[in-house]
């Protein structure tokens, strides 16, 4: 359910994406209001991650436009997204294994700031490192600042993945299956943290874990085979027979 009267932070219109002959997205229209919490559900291969990659600028849509805060960024490269307040996580963690937890967060924070090419340290670095330490605490890694990422457990790496995205105080946060590979307790903790996000933050979350997705979201979109096939509140989606069928694999085709 779209919050009316608020600015649309993200507008996707007619998004199609083809990789050779494979149509990963077949005309997706989604508007997301600022502060909205949107969950995207769908079986593997539904096009969810492709949609994220298009929003994040990893590749341009074949057809259609992506607008973030009203600006057409369909063909703008990924590196321009942080300036628009976008941060994302990846389905498979993409961290810097050769660096420590603190340095991973530090690099994430510097990415949003100016001075990527600075070859001397200055007092800003202390501020960045304090922010990095706070960001680590937020994802329960406060005691692991000096640990190299390659020696973190899988769960800790997922936490850091999330911490890096949140460390830049994004206005649009894209989370790609943040709960995958987490224990039940960790999922609970993740859900609580997502619920505690500031109200101004817009969240789009891809998640297979229905408990996490439906308790965090105030609107749910279900994708299948590159298209949006259902949309509604978490309660409506829970009650939707078609969604159940897709997840349980009863129907072969829904087109």
């Amino acid at each position: 359910m779209t919050t009316t009267g608020t600015a649309q932070i993200l507008q996707l219109s007619g998004i199609e994406k083809a990789f050779g002959g494979v149509h990963a997205l077949r005309g997706v229209d989604i508007d997301v209001a600022q502060g909205e919490r949107l969950a995207i559900l769908g079986p593997n291969g539904a096009g969810k991650t492709t949609l994220f990659n298009v929003i994040a600028g990893d590749f341009a849509p074949t057809v259609g436009t992506v607008r973030i805060e009203g600006r057409d960024v369909s063909t703008a490269p990924a590196r321009t997204r942080p300036d628009l307040g976008v941060a994302r996580t990846y389905q498979r963690t993409r961290l810097f294994p050769g660096l420590t937890v603190e340095d991973n967060l530090y690099v994430a924070i510097v990415g949003k700031e100016r001075g990527h090419l600075r070859i001397f340290k200055n007092k800003k670095d202390r501020v960045f490192r304090e922010r990095a330490a706070r960001a680590a605490q937020r994802v329960w890694l406060g005691t692991k600042l000096d640990t190299k990422v390659e020696s973190l457990s899988h769960g800790e790496q997922r936490q850091l993945e999330l911490g890096m995205a949140m460390s830049v105080h994004p206005s649009l946060l894209l989370l790609d299956e943040p709960a995958s590979g987490l224990s039940q307790g960790e999922r609970q903790r993740l859900t609580e943290m997502l619920l505690s996000l500031e109200e101004s933050v817009t969240l789009i979350i891809i998640e297979h874990d229905m408990d996490v997705a439906l308790s965090v979201a105030d609107r749910v979109i279900v994708m299948h085979d590159g298209s949006v096939i259902a949309e509604g509140t978490p309660d409506e989606i829970r009650a939707n027979q078609m969604v159940h069928d897709i997840y349980l694999g009863r129907t072969g085709s829904l087109e």
């Binding site: 994040a56 590196r79 997204r81 942080p82 300036d83 994302r88 050769g98 994430a108 990415g111």
Partner: peptide
């Protein structure tokens, strides 16, 4: 370590 992630971070 991961240039794709680096571009997505700006």
């Amino acid at each position: 370590d991961d240039h794709v992630r680096m571009s997505s971070m700006g």
